[in-house]
Each structure stands twice: as C-alpha cells, then as structure tokens.
Nucleic acid binder design. Structure first.
Lengths: 354, 354
DNA sequence: TTGAAAGCGCTACCAT
DNA sequence: ATGGTAGCGCTTTCAA
C-alpha cells in the first residue's frame, strides 16, 4: 500500500495539517520540522500529496482541456491544428498548466463521455464539424471555454478567438475574380453531413451547416456576385475529410469532365494541395491550367507556391488559452478577431486566353 | 452553487447510491427510476458526477500523462515528435483515454512540480535530454511508465519502445563509408550539456551523456573504425537545439574552414536539413560537394532527397501507449525494439575525385 | 508554529 | 432493485 499523508504524520508524530503544510505552504512551519517531515516521507516512500485528492479538496485541477471534435489523431495530422496546439501549449507552459487532450468517441451514445469525465478547469475547443453536443456538455458542467470560431448558438458567456471568415475568403476570391475567372468551383470539407466526395447541390452558401465553411463560402460568393457570377453558377465540391487525399478525390470528377472550372477555391490548404496533386496527376489531359487557392498558409503552402489566406495559427492557440488562463486578457465581449492576409503565389494566374 | 449528487438524491427521494448507479451502472436500477433521476438532475442543473471526486474514490483517472523533457511546445514543433504523438493518441483514442501533456518547467526548483501534480494513471516519456529528474518523480509516485529509449538507470520494471540505435546508426554510416568518405563529421544535439554550437572535443562516443546520442555516435564510430578511421579523426559537431536552424549553425564554422569534411552524419533529420540549408547558403564557395545523412525519415526528408534511417514514428507512439494501456501487449521483458531501414536518397554520393 | 475538526463529492460494499 | 455506511486523501479554517 502506498503511504498516505497520514502515515507520514504518524511517523513524525505531527498532525496531517503540518505535513500538508510542509508540502504546500513551506512558510507555515519551521525549516527544521519541514526537513524532518520530508525526510520521513522519503524514508516511507511517500511521494507527496495525491493530486486527485488535492484537486478535490481545492476545487480546481490545474489543467486545461483541449477538445478536437474529430479523431484525436487529427490534432497531430493536420498541420494547422498542430500549430494551433503549439500556441496553446506555449501559454499553458507559461502558467505551469497541463493540457488534457480529450478524444471524442465516434460513439456518442456511450452513457458517459470523456468530456463529462475530464478533470479540467476549462476547455479550448478546436472547431471542426459537429461540436454542438460536446459544447453543451461543457456548458452544463459550468466550465469556462473558448472556441476557435463564433458559434451560431453563442451565449453571452461565450468566448472565441477567430478571424473574419467571410472577409478573409472574400479577399482571396476577389483576387481570383480579378484574374478573370468566372467558371469556378469552391471546395469544402463535409459541406453537408454524409455527403459523398465531389460535386454537390447547395442552395446557397448560408446552407452549409458548419459555421466556418459557411463563412468562407459566403465570402467566396460575395466576390463572385460582385462580378456578376451568381451562386448557382458556382460548382460546390465536397471533400470527405480535411486532408490532401480527400481534396484530390473531391475534384477528380470535375477535372475529368469536359468543361472543368478555371479556378478552384478551397477552404483549407491541405485540400488545395490535394487539388494540386489531382492537377498534376491529370496533367497533360487538361485543356488548360487551373488556378487554385487555399486557406491558412501552412508551411507546405509556400513550397507548393499556393496562393492562400494566411491566418495566425499559433497566435490563435496562444490567445485561446490566454483567454482562459489570463482573464484580464479577455476583452469585454470575450471575442478576439485576428487579422488575415492574402498571400499571392504561383498557383493562381489569369484565365487562359483572356 | 453547483448541485451535487446528494441534491439530486434528495430531490427524487432516493439515496446517493441510487443516483450514482443511474450514471455509472444503469443496469443496477429500473429504467423508470433512472429516467426519473436523470430528469430531476437536468432540472436541477446537475451535470453528472464530479470527475475529480469520482477519480479519488475509484482510484484511477482514465488519463495517460505524456512528458516531453523539453519545452512543451517542442512536442508540436518537431516533426518526429508530432508523429510520435499521433501514434500515442491513436491508442489513447481506442481506449477512451485522455492524454495529459505536462509541461516541464525550466525551473526545477519549484517546490512542487507539474509531474508530481499530474492526475494520471501512467506516463509516456518522450526522451530528449535530461529526463532523469522527472523519471525519478514518476517512479516515486509508483506510476507505470514507458520511455522511448532504454535508460542507463533502467530497473526491472522499466518498459520502453525503441530501436537499436547503434545498429541503425551504423547502417547509414556504413553506407557513407562505402562511398569512400573518410573525412567526416558527426552532428548531434546537446552532445555535452551547455556546449556551444560547432566543433567539440568528445573523448569517445560513449562519453555523450544522452543515451540516444551516445548510441548513434557509437554506431557511426563502429562503421568508420571498420574502414580504418578512428574516433579522434572524426569531427564532432554540436547543435544547441534539435531544429533546422541549429543544424545549420552547428556546421557553419567547419564549412567555412579550408578543409571541410566530405560527409556530415546527423543524429536527426531536422539537423540534417539544417546542414543542407548551410550547404546551400555556402554554395559555390565550397571546394566540393558534401554528403549529408539524417535520422528518422520525417516527411520533409523525402522532398529534400535526404539519405536517412527510417524509424517507425507513429508505431513507436502507438506501442508506447499500448504497453501501458494493454498490459498483455507488453512482452515479458517490457521492451519493444522496432525495426529501422536505411533510406538512400540523393544527399549522399561518392567522395569527389575518388 | 502546530493541531483538531470538518468536510470536498463520490462509489463500493453489504444489507435488505 | 434500493439504501446505509464508510471511507478515498487531502486542505483549510479556526483555535491553542
């Protein structure tokens, strides 16, 4: 049996409070007594107060939950997510706070979920897809949280650190439109639940259930509407996951068709890189070059010459954690809207023959 | 005040045990009563048992600690570390286990450390540098743990999942030696504590304090000894961190010298990529091309044409977690030695003029 | 500077 | 199927 604080107290002949103080409030007892206690502890094999018991008693844990509403391994697979986490971890480190990465089980019917059982003082929720369920649990638990995007069901206590999705998307779409592109496709991930890879009917950009996709599609639509291209004339492409292969799969059929778009605007860089892969694979069979844009500006984007919108990934993570860990950092309304930049590289060019 | 389980029990007029069962052991009470309890809970705003109290009572937490003996953000910055984590998270996910990433404070003198306070059931320790202190804490706490390398101070209970560092290093060094290289440099990170960037005196490869560096240097030495190049004839280069820039900085001075080595063998791909950067920067000033090798085979290695040793990064993480979460997975001796492969690309070639 | 008392919120065992 | 009892290991008033 592991010894407890009580055992140490007994061994030294003092009370539990004193042993507790020896660990947690060294200034509350004489140095001599403290040494004596610590020595006895070492001798008995007592390694300090039990963290769980301590948390229970104190009422807080010293850990921040990080929730990815997707497979947990996504967090380490997607370059943007990794940089976000790097930012979160930087803030956490400064505070000596641990990070609890919580896997969201595919099976939500399990009686008790990991989110309900997470011993944390708050949550950073990285929004990808359908996190409403998890957010409800977090709210019910009364835990503070920060999301990476404005939520449609946001309450007054909701904090987030995001970007102006619509304006950012518009900036890159304006660039594409200015190059003369009129036959274009937009590409998002899980545009509609359970949709297959490839073209999709979407009545209007606001019909995309996920807020991020909705915001970006709306920005794309704004830009093209301004040059006379109405939404129905735009091809909507669906990817079944946010990765390169899924991006390639999503455009495959339209690239194989006989009148492919002259530009594809993707909702993320990884999807856009997938489009570039598909283009390379289709190669000489294509009637003309296709412009491609991404979103995020991950490291790989530069190497690939991808035109994209840069958003400050690490900063987003740093601030998300700071909103929780450094309350004064939070502005009155709890929102932080970060700047974005259009980054023009070689993946976009004028419409062939225009 | 948040309601407690007791409040719900009072409201429904049952005992605490019954409410507890409603959440944790649904089969222990009638469906009707359970529904009634859950409804009352919702009405009162009770969101389920307090995770901390539950852990205290049950004696386990349902979380695995992951310890990086370095800045926590290193975990998300180094490509190899990220893939390792992806593997860990995959196993964790399968078990519905959370991952607690604990930051190791630079300041180890703080009375109580995050390692002592981490509420976890075990630890995956990613070895980089000086983790002895942290390992002692973990052992003292009596927690099971797995490291990513054999530890010199390993006890009988120590489990690890690693590779044969020495043999792996030898395989790539043999390749370099076979190409005729005799004037070579080896490059490691923090070869000696607090050493500056650049050349270093190291009496013999076994003198490197860090086990991984020691193993790899020894393998390099083996290969060159076999072709008549003794250790003292090999230049030892030190990088002050495991990243590209540090790799470049480490070789800068020897590249600027008038008799640079014909090959540089690095202990990691990121370091090797840094050497490639330095080579590119030195460019035409160099008397002859320099062969470079890495270690790990991260994604960037392929793009850069880097000759390296592949080790299964994700697998390492997956198995490390499995050793903890699936005890039967652990072989009797608690070790798992994973295979490695020499991957020859374009960064190595025959000695010029040989 | 030290100690006694009073729980933190829950679950598991054993009865009924 | 349900309830009573007895802590899990600790910290924090408060009084001495």
């Amino acid at each position: 049996m592991k010894p407890t604080l009580q055992d140490v107290a007994d061994a030294v002949g003092v009370s539990r409070s004193t042993v507790s103080n020896a660990y947690s409030r060294p200034d509350q007892l004489s140095a001599a007594l403290r040494t004596k206690i610590l020595d006895a502890a070492r001798r008995l094999g007592y390694s300090g107060p039990n963290p769980t018991a301590r948390s229970l008693r104190r009422g807080f844990v010293g850990a921040l939950g990080v929730l990815f509403t997707s497979e947990l391994s996504y967090a380490f697979t997607d370059p943007f997510a990794v940089r976000f986490l790097a930012g979160v971890s930087r803030t956490a480190e400064r505070h000596g706070t641990s990070l609890l990465l919580v896997p969201l089980p595919a099976d939500r019917t399990r009686t008790r979920s990991v989110v309900e059982d997470a011993a944390v003082d708050g949550f950073c929720v990285y929004c990808v897809g359908d996190e409403d369920w998890a957010l409800r649990v977090i709210r019910d638990r009364g835990l503070p949280y920060v999301t990476t995007a404005a939520r449609p069901d946001a309450g007054p206590d909701d904090r987030y650190v995001g970007i102006d999705e619509r304006a950012a998307a518009r900036s890159v779409a304006d660039h594409v439109a200015a190059l003369g592109h009129r036959r274009v496709a937009v590409l998002g991930e899980t545009v509609l639940p359970d949709a297959p890879a490839g073209p999709l009917r979407l009545a209007d950009p606001g019909a995309a259930p996920h807020p991020t996709t909705r915001g970006r599609f709306t920005g794309f639509a704004d830009a093209f509407a301004a040059v006379g291209v109405a939404w129905p004339a735009i091809t909507v492409l669906n990817a079944t996951a946010n990765n390169r292969a899924a991006g390639a799969a999503a455009v495959a059929s339209v690239l194989a068709g006989d009148d492919p778009p002259t530009a594809v605007l993707a909702c993320s860089d990884v999807l856009a890189l997938g489009v570039l892969d598909a283009l390379a694979a289709a190669g000489p069979r294509l009637p003309r070059p296709v412009s491609v844009t991404g979103f995020d500006d991950i490291a790989e984007a530069a190497a690939a010459g991808l035109t994209t919108v840069r958003q400050p990934a690490e900063e987003k993570g740093r601030l998300a954690a700071a909103l929780l860990l450094e309350p004064p950092a939070a502005p009155a309304d709890g929102h932080l809207v970060l700047p974005t930049d259009l980054v023009v590289r070689t993946s976009t060019g004028p419409v062939p023959g225009s």
